[in-house]
Amino acid sequence: MEVRTIKVFTTVDNINLHTQVVDMSMTYGQQFGPTYLDGADVTKIKPHNSHEGKTFYVLPNDDTLRVEAFEYYHTTDPSFLGRYMSALNHTKKWKYPQVNGLTSIKWADNNCYLATALLTLQQIELKFNPPALQDAYYRARAGEAANFCALILAYCNKTVGELGDVRETMSYLFQHANLDSCKRVLNVVCKTCGQQQTTLKGVEAVMYMGTLSYEQFKKGVQIPCTCGKQATKYLVQQESPFVMMSAPPAQYELKHGTFTCASEYTGNYQCGHYKHITSKETLYCIDGALLTKSSEYKGPITDVFYKENSYTTTIK
């Protein structure tokens, strides 16, 4: 009895394709271990004539594949690729409408935090270190965002349907971005203890939790000093293409032309909904596939993004 075979390709990165001759009487799992086709788990399936010449994702289970996976995804987590594939199996079914010149995501599976993050990423200057993220990001900007969303979920250790947080998501993504040249110098002034300067680099240099107003941050924000008295913390120097200011959701007025974009969060910790506000020729609110415009805006804002380049204080 002759062994019926077909020729397929296996890959971990969709760049390096490895030619395989597979036995049609055995499952993919018996031949390769966990195997995925377009995100779908085909591990328990036997090869079919229609699979001839198709590319299958496999887990990096030998040295060659491990090197290829690390170079593309910059992670050695053995569960990463499987999590990416199972997320992709959902995100490829989502709709990605162009809204006001940006790629958004039609609401499904509690994905409003991903839509808000995706919209924000198209408006701030950011370059990702893992080629996987950078490639998928370019495709997302062009309207094909399924891979990018699935990668975000995998890097953030999230599953489809789980509630997510924009600030946490951005923080994970910033860790995989090139923020080497970003720098922030802060000064804390206390009447009792004097003053202390701190220099922050990388992710810490672009994120701040405690106030939404970048102007206020430049002037000074009140913080408790270690001595128990009130101290003032203010920005001395900022070198970065953008800054992200966050605070627990509270009524906040966004003035046209003073910011790049913002995240609105309605609801409580267990259950809520994100919308995205962007400042173009007027203010726009993007909620999944829905767009509304207004000249002014007041609502429960939790993150505001500002364009920056270089700032030095005039406070002496």
Rank of each mutant, 00 (worst) to 15 (best):
L17Q: 15
Q123W: 04
A115H: 01
K158H: 05
F9C: 12
K95L: 14
V304C: 02
K298F: 09
S181E: 15
Y155V: 02
V3D: 14
L121M: 09
F32M: 11
I286H: 04
F217E: 02
V206N: 01
T314V: 10
E52I: 12
A142Y: 11
T313W: 10
K218F: 03
Y113D: 03
W94G: 02
D287Q: 01
H18V: 08
I277K: 02
T5G: 09
A117I: 06
P131E: 01
I15N: 08
L81F: 15
D23F: 11
G272Y: 04
V22P: 10
P97K: 09
Y252R: 01
E264V: 11
Q222K: 11
A136L: 04
A150T: 03
L17H: 10
L153Q: 03
V99Y: 11
N178I: 01
S294I: 15
T116D: 06
V42D: 05
W107K: 01
T43Q: 13
T258M: 11
S310N: 09
L102S: 05
M244V: 00
C156V: 05
Q134A: 12
F70T: 09
T11R: 04
S181N: 08
R4I: 14
N89R: 13
R4A: 13
E2H: 08
D41Q: 12
R167K: 08
Q20D: 07
S171Y: 12
A142H: 14
T258H: 09
F217K: 02
Y73A: 04
F9W: 12
Q270D: 13
C190M: 02
V67H: 14
L173C: 07
N147F: 05
R141Q: 10
E281A: 05
N100E: 14
S240M: 01
T313H: 15
L119F: 04
Y274V: 01
T103A: 05
K54L: 13
D63L: 07
I6N: 06
T55P: 08
I286N: 00
L121R: 00
V221R: 04
L179H: 05
M26L: 09
N111E: 04
H90D: 09
L153K: 05
P78N: 13
Y306I: 04
N309R: 13
W107G: 05
K106L: 11
K280I: 11
V8A: 09
F9K: 10
H18M: 06
V236R: 04
L235D: 00
Q20W: 08
D13N: 09
Y306M: 01
Y84R: 03
Y297C: 04
V304W: 02
L290V: 13
Q270H: 11
L17E: 10
I45C: 13
A136Y: 09
S104E: 03
H74S: 07
L290M: 14
K44E: 15
F305Q: 00
F305M: 05
N110S: 05
H48G: 14
T169S: 05
C225Y: 01
Q251T: 10
N16H: 08
S213C: 09
Y269H: 15
Y297F: 07
W94E: 05
T198K: 14
Y234I: 10
T292D: 10
K92G: 06
G101A: 05
H51V: 06
P34G: 08
L153Y: 12
Y137S: 07
E308M: 12
K54R: 14
D63G: 15
A247I: 03
Q222V: 09
W107C: 03
E239C: 12
V189I: 10
F242K: 01
R66F: 13
S240P: 03
S246C: 09
R141K: 15
V22K: 07
C149E: 05
Q175A: 11
H256Q: 09
L88V: 06
P224S: 13
F128A: 02
D38K: 09
L88T: 04
L179E: 01
E52C: 11
S295C: 07
M170C: 11
Q230T: 13
F242N: 00
F9V: 07
L119G: 04
A136N: 11
Q20K: 14
E239Y: 09
T292G: 08
T35Y: 04
A150I: 02
M85K: 06
T211K: 04
Q270F: 06
V99F: 14
G161D: 05
V203Y: 15
K93Q: 08
K95T: 15
F70D: 07
V160S: 03
H273V: 00
K44N: 13
S279K: 00
Y269E: 15
V203N: 06
S104H: 04
Y269T: 15
L119A: 07
L283I: 15
T19R: 12
K106D: 15
S213I: 02
K219G: 08
K44Y: 08
A87K: 05
N129R: 14
G143E: 04
G29D: 10
P241L: 05
W107Q: 05
K255G: 07
N187T: 12
K201L: 13
L290I: 13
L17Y: 09
A108L: 05
N14F: 07
Q175Y: 08
D13E: 03
F70L: 12
Y28A: 05
D23W: 14
K54V: 11
N309A: 11
D41L: 10
T192P: 04
V243K: 00
S79R: 12
Q216K: 12
I105V: 07
F174T: 03
K106W: 01
C182N: 03
A262M: 00
A250Q: 15
I6W: 07
Y57H: 12
H74I: 04
A146Y: 06
L163D: 06
S246R: 05
Y72K: 10
L121Y: 04
N16S: 10
G272T: 02
P224D: 11
V99G: 07
D62E: 11
K218R: 07
L186Y: 14
C149R: 03
S86W: 15
Q195L: 14
L235V: 11
Q122T: 05
V236C: 08
F242R: 01
Y284H: 10
S279G: 09
G101N: 11
L59T: 12
L81P: 09
H74A: 06
V236G: 00
F128W: 12
Y72T: 07
S86P: 04
G202T: 00
E204V: 06
R141C: 12
A69H: 08
T76I: 14
L59E: 14
L133C: 05
T232I: 15
N89D: 12
V22L: 12
T312W: 08
Q20M: 10
M209K: 15
L102C: 03
Y214P: 04
N157C: 07
P34N: 15
H51T: 03
T159Y: 12
L88K: 06
Q195A: 14
Q197L: 10
A247W: 01
C156I: 10
M85S: 04
L37T: 10
T292C: 12
F305D: 07
L65I: 07
T10Q: 13
